[in-house]
Design a protein around this nucleic acid. Sequence first.
DNA 1: TTGTTGATTATAAGGCCAATAGACTTTGCAGATAATC
Length: 506
Amino acid sequence: MDPLAKQLSQYFGYDSFREGQRPIIEDVLKGEDVLGILPTGTGKSLTYQLPSLLQEGMTIVVSPLISLMIDQVKQLKAQGFKSVVAMNSFINYQERKRIMTNITQYKLLYISPEMLQNEWVLDQLTQIKVDLFVIDEAHCISQWGHEFRTDYLKLHVVLEQLRHPTVLALSATATPEVQDDILKKLKREGMKKRIYSMDKQNISFAVKELRSPEDKLVQITQLLQRTRVPAMIYFSSRQWAERAAVELQSKINQRVAFYHGGMEQTDRMLVQQQFMNDQLDVICCTSAFGMGVDKQNIRLVIHFHLPSQLESFIQEVGRAGRDGNPCVSLLLFSPKDHYLPQLLIEGELPDPNEISTILQKVDQYANNQGKLPDVEHILEELQLSESQWNFIHYQLEERGVFNGQSILQNADNTSLKTQLTKVVQQRWKYKQSKLTEMIHWIHSTTCRRTALYEPFQNHIRPPKVPCCDMCSFDIDQLDWQEGMSVIEEVSWQERLANVFAGGQKK
DNA sequence: TTGTTGATTATAAGGCCAATAGACTTTGCAGATAATC
């Protein structure tokens, strides 16, 4: 047994590596920067957890969600790793101070990109030796960084301040376009790419055109009356997610709940847990539900609304059938469906025609107090969404106008105005083209699978299930019992036994 | 001069048709502050 396999068995108790793990670990240990695209469920986290144990210095993991950090730390601690810790706003001030002053005790630190912008925290981290810098769910850089969470675009500065540790960027879905964007935004264009196929051989695809949203609900009701399997229904509106959940509850004999970002944290955790434990059959959710959801037996993913890009669709569909058993994706659309994603795009980017008004206002702030007022105040006064303002703020910070809350120079000049207008228009055009791609896909008359995965990889493996509605898969004819695991009622005795088993692998 | 006639114009009510405008709004962190136990 070679040393690496030995350490794998010693620390994690596995006999062998899964596809992709070993080459990435070897690269990382040699100090090479790697972009790793591994399908979900192939054990991405092991590719940095093992190196963190073998290296002398610290491993920092940038994670997009506090709940993900908590889960990971909990899981590692349960496995016996003591030197793991998470750093985010969930941790109170005293605790943060305690962690950071004893930072050398830890080998693995989970942290949010926002927290890495905290001067004091970063200063503490520069005092120690960081060997590996991991970006988990690295597509967030490209998907969220530009407008929604711009601190994702500032990671390259952090890397510089940490004196350039080895970088490992991990994701499950990234088109070549997104991959390049990640490398560019990290200023690591020479990074090695380790890309593994992400086409799922156990999904059958179907797209159906209906007259109205109401017809979609009827269609879903009929479908769920015929079958009872763990199912997710994706919506782009919280209101619709709730409405559909309520209607389905009254019409089908199944356990249905809704989930979205506007809910209380405790309710969200409860619903997610119930779904994971097979105590719910159907979940009506927005894109808030997904990351870190490791449920193996989801059989059906329905899209009630049109995602604004194929990447999101692939990510959402990819949550089905992690156990490898057959599963189905159904996308429903009606004639006016492009309107909603369009609205969402508009809500993310500032109007190019408003740029000069915004810059004028910034100069007013500069003259008044030399720094920016509360974000709420700005949003109210300029009638901008948070994302729109984040975008502007980041762009002006990049150009030396802002440094955090302070305004360093005048903003209202023609050069800045032209530059900003140009960037907005570029982003605008990009987002439009992604939406157009999605719309083309639903209207395409060729094989869905080929059209979907073609932009991502050269070779598409043949499916192990009926392929798609263009290749004579008919969702209405599907025998839902065959090959589909039906939810088993778990008795409280069994559940209790599972609790005592402490999540041990069967 | 008076009445009849057809042409023209103004006005209002109501029915019908075609074109057009408007409407469906996601994703999370951080850190200050107020309310509650």
